[in-house]
């Protein structure tokens, strides 16, 4: 008979849990496409009466993500490719938790830093410093840590001179740089990046990728959506291709990105 001390048991469980940074099981997401847009109470009443008369539904379901399952191991970087509208961004939003799935399960362990679309929920009327404070405190940093890291965040974003400028006065590239800087300084376990790097200049891109390599070495996982097969094969361990909401191919990053090039090149 084998017996475990509680210490050993905990350790075993610990390593099992640590192996996966995120597990996604059979994920589905439907959006309703209304035939008529209704955002007010009056419109809702009107369309309800309408529906009653014509006896048909006034919306269609659009499935943006259809039964996606994936597993991201700790320290693994996963690249996601696919043409526009294939469900990549929806998948990332689901992983980041900003929208909820219609069906399926998502399990993310640890702190997640999403860089969805451009910028990170920054407020245009507030200064750069105030925005950093808010975002960092949402990311779970304490006020003292924020204070300590403020300068290094501004330095990484190359915005030292603009600390007290209102965010709306920054260019979109500057805002993106700031977003990356805060996300990087918040020490997440999982980065979720949606094509955001494309805006930065080459110098900044290289700087970020270097930083991400550091993170990879330290066991941080990354999910990267990109239209650049070169970046994916260069940077990620594994990759997958999405089409119409489904995963149509997955495997190691190099072969998948080659496949993506042949798939999308005009015949």
């Amino acid at each position: 008979m084998v017996s475990f001390s509680s210490e050993e048991l905990k350790e075993n469980l610990g390593t099992r849990f640590e192996m996966n940074a995120a597990i996604v099981e059979d994920l589905w997401k439907a959006y309703r496409i209304p035939h008529k847009k209704k955002e007010s109470i009056l419109e809702n009443i009107a369309s309800f009466l309408d529906m009653f008369e014509s006896r048909r539904l006034d919306y269609e379901d659009f499935w943006a993500v259809k039964g996606v399952s994936l597993r991201i191991r700790k320290g693994e970087s996963l690249g996601i490719m696919g043409v526009n509208g294939s469900g990549k961004s929806t998948l990332l939003k689901l992983i980041a938790g900003t929208i909820r799935p219609t069906r399926g399960k998502i399990d993310v362990r640890g702190k997640i830093a999403p860089i969805l679309e451009l910028g990170l929920g920054f407020h245009p009327e507030l200064t750069v410093r105030d925005n950093v404070k808010i975002y960092a405190s949402i990311m779970g940093l304490k006020n003292r840590e924020i204070k300590n890291r403020m300068e290094s965040i501004l330095k990484f974003a190359e915005l030292e001179r603009f600390g007290d400028a209102k965010l709306k006065n920054l260019s979109s590239g500057m805002q993106m740089r700031l977003g990356f800087a805060v996300a990087i300084e918040s020490n997440p376990d999982l980065f979720v990046i949606d094509e955001a790097l494309a805006v930065g200049d080459i110098g900044f891109q290289t700087k970020c990728l270097d930083k991400f390599r550091d993170f990879q070495r330290n066991g941080c996982s990354i999910v990267l959506v990109s239209q650049s097969p070169a970046m994916i094969s260069d940077f990620c361990h594994s990759a997958l291709i999405m089409s119409r909401g489904e995963v149509v191919a997955s495997g190691d990053a190099r072969s998948i990105s080659t496949k993506y090039i042949t798939l999308t090149s005009p015949a």
Binding site: T98, L116, L120, G121, F122, H123, I138
Partner: peptide
């Protein structure tokens, strides 16, 4: 801006 970009 916050609600669509990050969960809390």
């Amino acid at each position: 801006q916050l609600v669509t970009k990050i969960y809390f």
